[in-house]
């Protein structure tokens, strides 16, 4: 019984020291990185994000954003990185600006991965619970879906011309041809 306990204790000690051993073998792991993934006006929830060294290109870490699009990487070695945001299909949809962990800079916060709203919507990253907001009249995504299908100015000028407002000539409706 005592032998089993001591065996378990040794195993626990080894397990606990594993990160230190790993750190020693991989170099300094001193930093942490946190940030936010978003598209347009909204966070990208539950998306896979990867930490990529731009020095030698190695993949340093990966994690998943929370419901609010927040992500964090811990125990990051010194170096210069970008964060990549991955679609459910495995495609990279966007990257952060590069940032550096070195010397006294052991934490980088506020890293933003802004991806194209149209690409995010096409990849299905903004569906589900946020669909209601997507289709809300006046909402950013609603207006961005087909930005040129209606030209309000042409409508107003046509209405003004038809109702005899002085100083107006009807504008050509140039949007219909493009649809």
């Amino acid at each position: 019984m005592n032998r089993l306990v001591s065996h378990l204790a040794v195993m626990a000690l080894l397990f606990a020291s594993f990160p230190l051993i790993a750190a020693a073998t991989r170099g300094q792991e001193t930093g942490q990185v946190s940030g936010w993934a978003f598209a347009g006006d909204r966070p990208v929830p539950n998306a896979l994000v990867r930490l990529r060294s731009i020095g030698d290109g190695h993949l340093a870490a990966s994690t998943t954003c929370d419901d609010a699009g927040n992500f964090a990487f811990v125990a990051v070695s010194e170096g210069t990185y970008v964060v990549e945001l991955i679609s459910p299909a495995g495609a990279i949809l966007g990257t952060s600006a590069p940032f550096t962990l070195a010397g006294h800079v052991t934490a980088v916060s506020g890293v933003t991965v802004g991806i194209s709203p149209t690409a995010a919507a096409a990849a299905g990253l903004l569906t589900g619970t946020s669909e209601g907001r997507l289709s809300r009249v006046g909402g950013f995504f609603y207006l961005l879906r087909e930005p040129f299908t209606s030209a309000l100015g042409v409508t107003v000028v046509a209405a003004a011309a038809a109702s005899g407002v002085a100083g107006v000539v009807a504008a050509r409706d140039d949007t219909s041809a493009s649809r």
Binding site: I54, V82, E84, S87, A91, I92, L93, G94, T95, P98, A119, A122, A123
Partner: peptide, 9 residues
């Protein structure tokens, strides 16, 4: 094809 192919900095 809607996937990042080159990142240049």
């Amino acid at each position: 094809n809607s996937a990042l192919a080159i990142l240049a900095l």
